[in-house]
Amino acid sequence: MSAGCAETRVDSRKQPVIAIRDLGFSYGESPVLEDVDLEILDGEFVGLVGPNAGGKSTLLRLVLGLLEPQRGSIQVLGQAPRQAVRRVGYVPQFPTFPRDFPISVEQVVLTGRLGFGPMLGWYRASDRAAARHALAEVEALDLANRRIGTLSGGQLQRVLLARALVAEPLILILDEPTANIDQRMEGDIFDLLARLNARLTILVVSHDIAFISGYVGRVACLNRTLVCHTTKRVDGNLIHQLYGDNVRQVAHAGSGHGHAHHLGHQGH
């Protein structure tokens, strides 16, 4: 943690559900993560922000056990990530499947039930009930019989959220859940996440620092190392510290939050 960062006030009574210590990772010779220390406590709603190529997605992949740390350690729910991953719900930034795959929304959500019940055979009635319940929770039950390729970006995001929730996770991890949808839906999704936070610990990656700071309890800023994690609202100083000079703040129509726009990359 660098100087000038606000002190993180953590509730010592709560248990960390994700504990990252002294983590280092590199692809080939270029380091992506260095000396990352981060604890996320039970019931927290944490936003992970930082510039593109700052290591956010790599950190998520390490927490999910899809990558192995080269230095340091990660514990999720007191276990190695790979052991804990069944109790973690994950919503990827981009769908990792072909959109023209012949599969219905309900079938997609049902794949989230893998790992429950016997290994052989078909889904059980309880799996189907759980899938419909998860779809109802994200207000997408009417999409159950639609083909996955016919959904809009916002609908798809809800379905992927339902696929994560149907596994009854204790932690929910989302990688830029609103990157591909319009602003109005962005608010809807985060309102939904805020409701889910009543029973789940949530870690959400976003490039939109100011927007998520209105929802999350704490922001962790990652640019190769953890620049800062703070309970304070994000201000100009922090944005400057994280991104450097190439940032201007613009007013965000409708939401009342200021948005930080990093001029060095596109796609916002």
């Binding site: 899809l66 991953v85 973690v88 994950y90 769908p95 990792t96 599969i103 989230g112 596994a167």
Partner: peptide, 12 residues
């Protein structure tokens, strides 16, 4: 067949 990464996360 559908989504290898997600299948891996579900312990398949």
């Amino acid at each position: 067949t559908f989504d290898e990464e997600f299948a891996r996360l579900r312990g398949v």
